[in-house]
Amino acid sequence: MWRDAALVAGKDLRVEARSRVGVNQVVPFALLVLVVFAFALDSDRDTLSAVGPGLFWVTVMFSGLLAIQRSFVIESDDDARDALRLSGLDGAGIFLGKAGAVAAQLAVLEVVLALGVVVLYDVHLHGPVMLLLTCLAATVGVAAAGTVYGIIAAGLRVRDTLLPLLVLPVLAPVLLAAARACEAALAGTPADGWPWVRLLFVFATIYVTFGVVAFGPLLEEA
């Protein structure tokens, strides 16, 4: 399973590195969203600083959707999804590989967005341990849930519009918990943040487990 996961993740990341869609489109889109929010909320630094964590995670969600959609678009060109079925790779391995590749892209995106939030919103980073654990759990959760719903939508003609409708409500708890945990870390009140971090890890565990079990049959039906 782990060998198959590494193979699929390596293939997906190589496709992204060659196509440069992430660098040329997803990252600029994410930064643009941050800038647009800054304009929309006026140039009041206190307001921007206060809502920074929420805006950061909303931007991660929207940008993450693009990465998830992209992960399945590459499998729809020239019936590559049939090739994935025919490969004989373990379904759980394919899931972990695809989710891992999405998570790696999200992690890079979060670093860029964190810099953007610091510069544009004047946010001062505190509580690095809680921030890192929040990003880790939220990233795994978003990537796992997105990959599960990505394969559900993959075989449908309306997949491009259906995926956000399916995924965003599911990711609402991640958005809420990650924003609250980051707010607590930045405010220097970590005790308020740990329950949200635990919730994020529970969410990530549930969706990783579900994906490992269900992705193979879902791929066959897609």
């Binding site: 293939k11 496709v15 590459i74 060109d77 020239d78 019936d79 590559a80 049939d82 025919l86």
Partner: peptide, 12 residues
């Protein structure tokens, strides 16, 4: 299986 589609990843 060599089918009608080539099953190739265009960016690879």
């Amino acid at each position: 299986l060599l089918g009608h589609a080539t099953f190739l990843y265009d960016d690879l």
